[in-house]
């Protein structure tokens, strides 16, 4: 049976890269004594897969991975056992059992939303976000996206599902996944260009809120919706 684990990665842990997070959880699962399934062979590895990688420097309260289990206890028991072996900055929020036939988190990820604030000492947030309306109102938002082999020009407008400015912070709901993966940095870079500013990666502190999939109606819902509570 497969379970889906939701976790938060905050504070100093934002400096831990995706591969290291994967290794971290493999070890945490052992420490917590969860009955995870392993591959066969001389170097067995845990059958776990992560949803959407998070860039270094970004915090999140909506990260996911799936694990193939031999047996499970209750969701709350497993959450507690994992949290007993976490370091500060890493917290398991929820565990559900996936419904029969559910695809892996990685395969179904369709969107993510973020809060973005501007660090002190960079551009003025008030004036920067004041132009958001005009920026998002453009009919096209062309960007140059670098892939491994080439640079592609792309209109990202269709992949920006929602936005708002509130309390001097920018909210973005973007397409995420293996196909149309739009990182928030890509939008911010375009916003800077729109305003004739040089894009400074460090000016923005990004926080991911949730990772989404589409339900039968095509609506974006939390990845947890693919599962059921384990009582």
């Amino acid at each position: 049976m497969k379970i889906r684990i939701k976790y938060a990665k905050t504070g100093a842990l934002r400096y831990i890269g995706h591969l290291d997070v994967m290794r971290y959880f493999q070890k945490a699962i052992r420490r917590a004594g969860l009955d995870v399934a392993y591959s066969q062979g001389y170097s067995p590895h845990q059958l776990i897969t992560f949803a959407a990688p998070l860039g270094i420097g970004i915090t999140s309260e909506g990260e996911y991975f799936d694990a193939e289990m031999h047996s499970v206890t209750t969701g709350s028991d497993m959450v507690e056992r994992l949290n007993q072996v976490m370091v500060s900055g890493m917290e398991v929020k929820d565990i559900v059992v996936l419904k029969e036939g559910a695809k892996t988190a990685m395969a179904v990820v369709a969107g993510s939303d973020y809060w973005i604030r501007i660090r002190e000492g960079y551009v003025d947030a008030l004036s920067f976000f004041a132009q958001a309306e005009a920026f998002f109102a453009q009919t096209e938002i062309p960007v140059v996206k670098a892939s491994k082999t080439r640079e592609v020009e792309l209109d990202i407008k269709p992949f920006i599902y929602d936005w708002k400015v509130q309390d001097n912070q920018l909210y973005l709901l973007l397409s995420t996944g293996s196909v149309d993966n739009i990182k928030p940095e890509l939008v911010l870079e375009a916003m800077c260009r729109f305003q004739g500013l040089e894009y400074q990666k460090l000016a923005f502190q990004i926080h991911r809120l949730e990772t989404y999939m589409r339900n039968e109606d095509g609506k974006l819902v939390s990845l947890l919706k693919a599962g059921e509570e384990i009582r």
Binding site: A12, L13, Y15, I16, D20, K27, R31, V85, V87, G89
Partner: peptide
């Protein structure tokens, strides 16, 4: 990650 401590 070399410089932040906080390891298990």
């Amino acid at each position: 990650a070399r410089y932040i401590g906080n390891e298990v």
